[in-house]
Amino acid sequence: MFVVIGATGNVGREAVALLRRTGEEVAAVSRDPAAVLPDGVRLVQGDPSEPDSITAWPEDIEGVLLSPRAAGGATAELLALAAARGARRVVSLSAATVEHPAGERRFADEFRAVERDVRESGLPWTFLRCADFAANSLAWAPQIRATGVVRSAYGGAATSPIHHRDIAEVAVRALTEPDHAGHAYLLTGPRRLDQRDKVRLIGEALGRDLAFEEITPEEVRRAMLGQGLPEDVPDRYLGSLADYAKAPGPTTDTVRQLLGRPALTFAVWAAENTAAFGTPAAS
């Protein structure tokens, strides 16, 4: 039995589906009693950030996939409960900024704290230190649908964004193959892209000409706060972009080494998500 904590997030949802396709038994921990899950997946209802709310833990847990966002600050308590039910390994999502600092230190420190708690759990562990997700670009969808223009700061900020499906496939390997214990994998996409590159590739997927318009960081901050987002969101976003505009984020070949194929490109992700950005142009 594999337990996925954060089963309705991008990576967790994909990992659940992959595990089921290979015939594994899966329990998905979710706050949502109506969470839509693949056939045969056991729903374990409860709030991972409040471990005492999870009252139906399965027994004989082989491995746990942990999303720090879902766990909140309760990593140690969650893993203690899993270990008491036989868990034999844990795979934890983490961030590239743990080893390649960018943005405000406090955000990387949150992931370092999770990694510390995972190590101290006593379970064999694997960390997946991920670059920014390609799916983060969905934040541009309202602008693209409305105007065809993305207005943001730091257009030259460059990273190697990763497809969440690659992360999930690596996670499943690490959950089901014991040789990955004790490894911290730095996972990125195959190619460095700045923000203008991403907008262009989304436009190519749509068959439309999109534009990137540079505005000031303060304008971006005001717009995000005006949408009701908490201050941490623009702090995290703009701090990272400012640093990636000075020096690009890392690019690794780790996905290819682990999966035996190249990492999926941002263009592939964009082509899969055209519906979010608007109707593709007629050919």
Rank of each mutant, 00 (worst) to 15 (best):
V118K: 14
G122P: 01
R151Q: 13
V91R: 09
L175I: 11
A181W: 05
G148S: 14
A134Y: 01
Q143F: 03
D132G: 06
I162P: 00
A141R: 10
T147W: 06
L123P: 00
W140H: 09
S160F: 03
A153F: 02
A135M: 09
A131R: 07
L93E: 13
T97H: 03
F127L: 12
R116T: 02
H183V: 11
A131M: 13
S152L: 06
P142H: 12
D109G: 06
A102K: 07
E120L: 15
L93W: 11
P124R: 15
A113C: 02
A95P: 00
A168F: 03
E120W: 12
Y185G: 00
R129N: 12
A141V: 11
A171K: 06
V114M: 10
G156K: 05
R88G: 12
S152D: 14
G86Q: 13
R165A: 15
V150G: 01
D166V: 08
E104Q: 14
Y185T: 04
A134F: 03
A131E: 15
R165Y: 09
I162R: 08
L128C: 04
R145D: 01
G148H: 09
A146P: 08
L123T: 01
D166M: 12
R116L: 12
D117S: 15
F127N: 03
Q143N: 01
H100G: 00
F111S: 00
T176E: 05
G86N: 11
A87H: 09
R191V: 08
G86M: 10
A113R: 15
E115C: 08
V98P: 02
A102H: 09
A135E: 13
A108S: 14
P142M: 13
A184D: 07
A141F: 13
R85M: 01
E120G: 10
T97Y: 03
V91W: 02
R173G: 01
Q143K: 03
R119F: 08
A139Y: 03
L128M: 07
E99F: 00
H100Q: 02
A134C: 13
E110F: 05
V91K: 12
V91E: 09
A171C: 07
T188Y: 01
R165N: 07
A181H: 07
L186Q: 11
S160K: 04
R112D: 02
S160I: 07
L187W: 06
W125F: 15
A168D: 08
Y154C: 06
R89C: 09
T188H: 02
G122S: 13
R105A: 15
I167L: 15
A108H: 03
F127K: 09
A174I: 08
G182H: 10
H163G: 04
A181Q: 08
A134R: 00
G182V: 13
L123R: 14
Y154A: 01
A102S: 11
V90E: 11
L186C: 02
A174H: 02
D179H: 05
V114E: 05
A131S: 15
G103T: 08
A157S: 10
C130R: 04
S121E: 04
A95D: 13
V150S: 00
I144E: 04
E169G: 05
W125S: 11
